[in-house]
Design a protein around this nucleic acid. Structure first.
Lengths: 275, 275
DNA sequence: AACCACAAGATTGGATACCAATCAACATTT
DNA sequence: AAATGTTGATTGGTATCCAATCTTGTGGTT
């Protein structure tokens, strides 16, 4: 059994990438210690882990908040992710054996069937997973961990932005990347990876503020007893600034202009996560 | 001022990359708390940070030790580093302006002068720094942090292995990488980066055990009062197994075969760090 | 009404003391 | 000598306390 602070950090990480804890949300020590029924010190250790992973930021004497990356940082994260996946692609094009290619194709096929069957939730999960499988085939655990961390941060970003892209065009990218790589057309594959990520980023419109729809206690409740995992807790981001009806609690506001500035033209919200 | 656990983690990191704390060395909570004059809790937080960075490993109910990566992990770290630097090279070849190229050339020139002047210590530092400057020019803080972390881990590796390579051949690699990149010969530059790192790794012979030559208290003493930074505390790795004269304290031994197995043909020890 | 100063409350960072569980090394017994 | 307790040391964790700092609310001033 690993340490308790680790399991709490894992739970918080889970809640963040599930968008149940949104950027800017305050993670108070006392509050969390009551939720998890541990001492404040264990909570603080968990928060240190989160901060090291870039998912939270700790401000001295102010406390910890779910990280709220700037647009600049968002671009950097996607650039880094692109760089890593391109590099892995280059390695795989040399070293990957038949079994590896088969696994990639199998995965793509499973996702295609999910899409065909209308199972959007599964398709989303598989789409996310593709990148993970891709990197795992490099058989480099260090690289895997770096990649996983970047993926978590991109997932965090998605609750801060409003997606606005042509979703369907992204569906075939995975398949084409595998094709290109296996045929040895590395350059084209790398370009496609770049385009793939750029297509996601370009559609992003970073909203000024995001309002939590529940308290940390409510957000974390589903994870506590190790019971049912919530299937699709994500809702489309509310971008209208005056939607102040619900309990907008515990959000850290810079106390300046919470004016309604973002009227995103939401062709398609990021309910379905890009992959 | 940042938190105390952060400064302690920084100090320990420093001591590790300076090879004053060697892999396997036990980092006891009570001992460190007395050294730094803080409570055990702060020390534990610092150790969590170190473990997250891959510089320490915490074993449940056993304590924290300076990380002792396997040969496999060492290869993976170098592969990851290669991948990152190749990716940065690809980005720079597109995006870097004249000022950037000038900075790189200036840096190489400074190192060359240091070598010419016989200032080996400075040359080593500059050689290490080149990679950092290189990545910084990508203007991607996320990538910088990932790279810095990998560099720290490679530095850690160097106290676990015995270098055995032709040192002089590496000296010009930096200059040639800059040349190739500026001329747009990206592929060759990337190959050279790969070769550069491979040349380092291939010369490595991983020793079975490494014995600390001082207690953590002695190792950390120079950093405590923020006073003099030790210039070159590094000694060539002792590889003869029966050199059991000094105080081999606090090392974590698996209790099996501490037999003298490594008789490295040390053409040139890694007193001067490869860069 | 806007604005500044100041006091009160809340939160964090940290110290200390204490306890249970576990591990390691030693001592004992066979 | 090997197996088996026993004991001490270390870790993981809790509870309590305290100082420093931040936030907030209050009240006076313009």
């Amino acid at each position: 059994m690993s340490s308790r602070s680790q399991t709490i950090a894992d739970t918080l990480t889970r809640a963040i990438i599930d968008h149940r804890l949104v950027p800017g949300c305050k993670l108070g020590e006392r509050e969390l210690s009551e939720i998890f029924n541990v001492s404040r010190i264990v909570v603080r250790q968990a928060l240190i882990r989160l901060a090291d992973d870039g998912l939270a930021q700790i401000e001295r004497n102010r406390g910890a908040f779910v990280a709220k990356p700037s647009m600049q940082e968002a671009m950097e994260i996607y650039d880094a992710l692109t760089l890593v996946e391109q590099g892995v692609a280059a390695q795989l094009s040399d070293r990957l054996g038949p079994a590896g290619w088969a696994e990639l194709r199998h995965h793509v096929e499973r996702q295609r069937q999910a899409v065909a069957g209308g199972n959007d939730a599964l398709a989303d999960v598989l789409g996310q997973e593709f990148h993970t499988v891709f990197v795992r085939l490099s058989r480099n655990k260090v690289m895997q961990e770096i990649h996983a961390q970047l993926v978590r941060r991109t997932t965090l970003l998605r609750s801060l932005i409003t997606a606005d892209f042509d979703y369907c065009n992204l569906l075939d990218d995975h398949s084409r990347v595998v094709d290109l790589l296996e045929k040895g057309r590395l350059k084209q594959a790398m370009d496609l990876i770049d385009t793939h990520h750029r297509a996601v980023v370009r559609g992003y419109i970073m909203d000024r503020e995001v309002f939590p729809e529940m308290t940390p206690a409510e957000a974390l409740a589903p994870y506590l007893d190790g019971a049912a995992v919530p299937v699709a807790p994500r809702k489309p981001a509310k971008t209208s600034g005056n939607g102040d009806s619900a309990t907008h609690v515990h959000v850290h506001l810079p106390k300046i202009d919470r004016a309604p500035t973002s009227r995103a033209s939401t062709k398609k919200t990021n309910r379905g996560l890009p992959s």
